[in-house]
């Protein structure tokens, strides 16, 4: 009797497993193709890619020269510029993406009228849902030589030829597009604050500034740290759309607008693509990001266990 029950439940278990696996099958196949197979593609970075054999069938470099493609990255004349651009823009963006959205979120929270909040949020979020292609057009509307709004206003006609303006232009457009998202995220973190804490602080005569510094900001700390760690993962990657669409690939601007991603893309679609080198750049970006996340998380865990991401 007991034995029969056991086989039955085993049978049920087995049937359940089959159905479960059938249900995850489409997703699993997709996941394998889209996420797992590209892991194998990392081997491209270690291959002597030949077009005859096809990139993924090309032979691996022998062990002693395994890192030839990686060495080649650092032999490129432009590598210094690429690394500088990628890193500097990211550092600036990481700092601004914390400071400005946090400040705006705190101000947003000071508004009581739900209607006003809704209007402000809709307006400020709108740039977020627009594609970078459209942003490229908007950039042109402001900066074009013949008819740009800013060009006419300031009498400057060489925006697409003079690199000097671009660190500023790229930063402004990045903020324009991404501010809303940051604001919404920090506003949602503010919702959790217990209103009675503010009431108590007010009774004690704490000014708005004191309440912000001693209640609001500490409350946001965890979210700020989370966002910071996640942005470290992308420190070697850049927002391809921003750097590709806005400068319109103008060769005059390369020095300040080319990042690793743009370089890889241009090389891939160019006349003489170097797949091994490009795969090495991709792998380099992933590895640096991965190490930084682990490192940052480790340091934060040492300092303040609760704020760590994992």
């Amino acid at each position: 009797m007991q034995r029969k029950a056991k086989t039955l439940s085993q049978n049920g278990m087995w049937k359940r497993s089959v159905i479960t696996y059938l249900m995850i099958l489409p997703g699993l196949i997709y996941f394998i193709i889209n996420n797992i197979l590209p892991m194998y593609g990392i081997t491209l970075a270690f291959r002597n890619v030949s077009y005859k054999l096809g990139p993924l069938n090309s032979p691996l470099y022998p062990l002693e020269d395994l890192f030839v493609n990686f060495e080649m990255i650092f032999k490129q004349d432009i590598i210094g510029i690429l690394l500088r651009n990628t890193l500097l823009y990211n550092v600036v963006f990481i700092v601004l993406d914390i400071v400005i959205p946090v400040a705006v979120a705190i101000l947003f929270n000071a508004i009581e009228s739900e209607r006003s909040k809704k209007i402000f949020q809709t307006a400020i979020l709108l740039p977020n849902i627009i594609s970078w292609v459209i942003v490229g057009y908007i950039g042109y509307a402001f900066l074009s030589e013949k008819s740009g709004v800013i060009s006419h206003l300031l009498g400057v006609t060489d925006f697409y030829h003079n690199p000097i303006y671009w660190p500023f232009i790229l930063t402004v457009f990045h903020l324009w597009k991404c501010l809303g998202m940051g604001m919404v995220i920090y506003v949602s973190a503010l919702v959790g604050i217990d209103a009675s804490m503010y009431e108590a602080a007010k009774l004690d005569g704490a000014t708005w500034w004191q309440r912000t510094v001693h209640i609001t900001l500490p409350h946001l700390k965890k979210m700020i740290i989370t966002m910071f760690i996640l942005s470290l993962a992308r420190i070697m990657t850049s927002d391809f759309g921003l750097f590709y669409q806005l400068p319109m690939n103008s060769s005059y601007l390369k020095d300040v607008t080319q990042t690793l991603d743009v370089y890889v893309f241009n090389n891939l679609v160019g006349n003489d693509p170097n797949i091994g080198l490009n795969a090495a750049v991709s792998a380099f970006q992933s590895v640096v990001g991965f190490i930084l996340v682990i490192l940052a998380n480790f340091v934060i865990k040492k300092v303040d266990d609760e704020s760590a991401l994992f």
Binding site: M39, Y40, L56, S286
Partner: peptide, 13 residues
């Protein structure tokens, strides 16, 4: 946390 990157995705697809 760690992915193959654009180039290898491209070759897979």
């Amino acid at each position: 946390l760690f992915n193959g990157g654009m180039v290898s995705s491209y070759y897979v697809w």
